[in-house]
Design a protein around this nucleic acid. Structure first.
Lengths: 123, 123
DNA sequence: TTTGACCCTGACATTAATGTCATCCATCGA
DNA sequence: TCGATGGATGACATTAATGTCAGGGTCAAA
């Protein structure tokens, strides 16, 4: 698909799609004219990238870990360098911290809303 | 305590503490000389702020929700405006999304590391 | 063939969170 | 009293993610 459709399907500005490509987070073929052409799997990829960005990961890190989270359960993993392992462990641990922080505050907001009489569902 | 100590106790650059104050996330008294003087509870507050920033919340939002997450279980909550309720619900929902995203990727990294033979513990 | 929708590249602006300085006041110990 | 340390304000720089334009092709439908 071309960039416009990818943009719509991922609800992501075209500008950003080109940016992600520049940061090597996604790739694209080129049509006879110079138009970018994306494979379908890129849709999910972009969504994942956005999610990670939204959660505070910088593109630099995303680019490093993305290849390791690619397929269902790691189709091809060449020699994993110790460096990469360290990075992954680091990222994994920081994610755990974030989850904890988010969970705590998510709960607190729920409690508050409930105490204030609003919003009885959706804890 | 003065800003230096707060900085150490929260592992936060002094620069940032002044910044958070400028954004109305924390407050401080002033000593006879112009030095800032912080109450003890500010330590936790700063840690919470950092956590929220780290997880992608902008200071503008943090400033809005912080007062609602202040005390153990909401000591004083004046008339909660419908606007505030809407904001809180919005933030709460976005947090849930983030938690889901993080959990998913956290798991994926764990799986990868395990599959790669590294890191057998700490799922 | 003309027009409008799409795409391309590249430059510049912006917002947020931070880093870095410079300049000056305050305090306390040697 | 001097000097080191710590604090204050304010200006300027930077990095990342994004927004916005400008100038210029592609192509299909009218």
């Amino acid at each position: 698909m071309r960039i416009g459709e990818l943009s719509k399907r991922t609800d992501t500005p075209v500008r950003m799609l080109r940016y992600y490509e520049a940061r090597n987070l996604i790739v694209s073929e080129r049509l006879h004219n110079g138009y970018r052409d994306y494979d379908d799997y890129v849709v999910d990829r972009v969504r994942q990238i956005r999610g990670l960005l939204d959660v505070g990961l910088p593109t630099r890190i995303i680019g490093q870990i993305l290849p390791c989270l690619d397929s269902p359960i790691t189709i091809h993993m060449p020699y994993v360098t110790p460096d990469m392992v360290a990075t992954l462990e680091e990222v994994r641990d920081r994610m755990a911290e974030k989850i904890e922080c988010l969970t705590k505050n998510h709960t607190a907001i729920g409690d508050y809303l409930r105490a204030a009489g609003f919003d009885a569902e959706a804890s």
